[in-house]
């Protein structure tokens, strides 16, 4: 029974990181209506950069996290400002192709700089605590706390700050927001920067579990399943979806076979899309001509 509970706990922890990646998707989609297929690659770059700071240059863990966040946020900002801004108003399809292409380029750059071998990222989270007989390692705990904290912060940012409200306005109607004096282009780049920063943290948090290599980018696709499951464009949905996908993976490898872990997320994604295309917490309407 205890082993089942620990499976559940690790599922929730991995799920929290999926939720963070999904949060990145959701932010960009909510604000700019672009689906960023390169989110997983941003996470990969984040983990690599953190590795450089901590292992190669010997920075402290927390300083390295902050620096990594800034670096990846700048990358996100530049991606939007230099590349995506050019195709505002083009059909969805070209944006999808563009971000897929960007993902490949980022992955190639990652392997060129940091090589193909798996790297180990050291963390200060050692040991474990005992909660009611269940042993929870600090790494696991750090993933959960980080995800919940970031989700809360992002939710508050969108609801309470001036910039956040302006982002909501821009996402509802670009033209109207622009007429009201909202600097739409700058805001979009800022959203990309925030989302890049979140991806960086997700990368640092998941690195102790997965090792750091270029395959980390594929986590982005699993997080997709999470984002869709929660309803694309809903911040609490991303959290719920991420945790559900993480749980589903661990439980399916516990109850069915270990291989099921790899595709459980995708099976769930297909099932959800077929049964309830708007996701669990999403809203849907009819398009006007």
């Amino acid at each position: 029974m205890h082993s089942l509970i620990s499976v559940i706990v690790s599922g929730v922890a991995v799920g929290c990181v999926y939720a963070l990646i999904a949060l990145g998707f959701t932010l960009i989609y909510k604000a700019t209506e672009v689906v960023n297929f390169a989110q997983g690659e941003l996470l990969m770059i984040g983990a690599f950069v953190a590795y450089s700071f901590i292992v190669l240059w010997g920075w402290g863990y927390w300083a390295a996290i902050a620096a990594t966040m800034i670096v990846v946020a700048v990358i996100g900002f530049l991606i939007d400002a230099v590349i995506l801004r050019r195709i505002i108003g083009q059909p969805q399809f070209s944006v999808v192709m563009l971000t897929i292409g960007l993902g490949f380029v980022l992955r190639a750059v990652g392997t060129m700089i940091w090589g193909t071998s798996s790297l180990v990222l050291p963390t200060p989270f050692a040991g474990a605590i005992n909660v009611g007989g269940v042993v929870v390692s600090s790494t696991t705990l750090s993933m959960m706390v980080g995800a919940v904290f970031l989700c809360g912060a992002v939710g508050m940012f969108f609801g309470l700050t001036r910039v956040g409200v302006a982002m909501q306005a821009a996402s509802q109607n670009q033209l109207a927001a622009y007429y009201m004096g909202v600097p739409v282009k700058l805001l979009f780049s800022l959203v990309w920067a925030i989302s890049g920063g979140i991806a960086a943290i997700a990368g640092v948090l998941i690195a102790p579990v997965t090792l750091v290599d270029s395959n980390l980018g594929f986590l982005g696709l699993k997080a997709f399943a999470a984002a869709v499951l929660g309803g694309f464009g809903s911040v609490p949905g991303a959290l719920v979806g991420g945790v559900l996908i993480g749980l589903l993976e661990q439980l399916s490898s516990w109850y069915v076979t270990a291989d099921m872990k790899d595709i459980a997320a995708y099976v769930a994604l297909l099932a959800v899309l077929f049964v309830r295309p708007q996701g669990l917490l999403g809203s849907v309407g009819r398009k006007k001509v």
Binding site: I83, R86, I87, Q90, S94, M97, L98, I100, G101, L102, G103, F104, V105, R107, A108, V109, G110, T111, M112, T116, S214
Partner: peptide
């Protein structure tokens, strides 16, 4: 040093894709 890098091929694929979407849709 650049030519023998692994991942050059998929990277170029991505770059070509990006270039076409941006400059010649």
């Amino acid at each position: 040093s650049l030519a023998q890098q692994p991942g050059l091929e998929p990277g170029l694929f991505g770059a070509i894709l990006v270039a076409f979407v941006l400059f010649e849709p």
